[in-house]
Structure formats: C-alpha cells, structure tokens
Amino acid sequence: MVEGKITNQLRTLRFLAGEMTQAELGERIGVTRQTIAAIEQGKYSPSLEAAFRIARVLGKSLEEVFQWTE
C-alpha cells in the first residue's frame, strides 16, 4: 500500500478570498465550520465532492488548493 499525505493551502486561500471565514466557506459548500477547521489542520481529508466544491468557491483548481505527496 502506498502511503501519502494530503496537504492544503486552504487557510491562505480563504484569506486571499476576502478573508472568508471557516464558517462562511462551510456554509457555501454544505459542511460545518468544524469540518473546515479539521481539513485545514490536516486532521481530516475532504470527500472528492467537498474538495471540488471548496476549489470552486475559492475560484481555484483542485491542485491549487490540495496537494498529495508520497
């Protein structure tokens, strides 16, 4: 099995998107603020659907928001 880690630029991109709060982003994609916080901290990996929604709300590609390293 290949081990990998998903990292993200979520906090930076939220700030650049008019200082959007975790709660605002969560509301726009249909998850809680706590879920956004956990994703930002790398404690939780979003579903593929949630990842695409986050990228779309931030106006970025999936790869600009999330990175995967082996």
Rank of each mutant, 00 (worst) to 15 (best):
Q34K: 13
G18N: 13
L10G: 01
F66H: 02
G26T: 09
I54H: 05
I36M: 10
G30A: 09
Q41E: 11
R28Q: 15
E24V: 06
T21M: 05
E63D: 15
K43N: 11
S61G: 11
A50S: 14
N8V: 10
A23Q: 14
A37C: 12
S47N: 04
F52K: 10
E70T: 08
E3T: 15
I29T: 03
T21K: 01
S45R: 02
F66I: 01
N8L: 06
E40Q: 06
G18L: 08
I54Y: 04
R56H: 14
T69A: 09
T21H: 04
R53H: 07
L25F: 10
Q22Y: 03
L10H: 07
T21A: 01
L16P: 01
I39L: 00
I6N: 00
L10F: 10
G26W: 09
R53Q: 12
Q34S: 14
F52T: 01
E19D: 15
A17M: 10
V2E: 12
E64W: 08
T7N: 01
M1Y: 03
Y44G: 00
S45H: 08
F66P: 03
R33T: 11
E3W: 12
A50V: 11
L13M: 14
V65H: 08
T12L: 11
A55E: 05
F52S: 03
S61N: 10
Q22E: 13
R33I: 05
V31Q: 05
G59T: 07
V57A: 06
F66G: 05
I36S: 08
T69C: 00
E63C: 03
I6L: 13
N8W: 08
R11L: 11
L13A: 04
M20A: 09
Q34I: 05
L16H: 07
L48G: 06
P46T: 08
P46C: 01
G18E: 10
A55R: 09
A23I: 07
K60S: 02
R33S: 13
I36R: 08
E70Q: 08
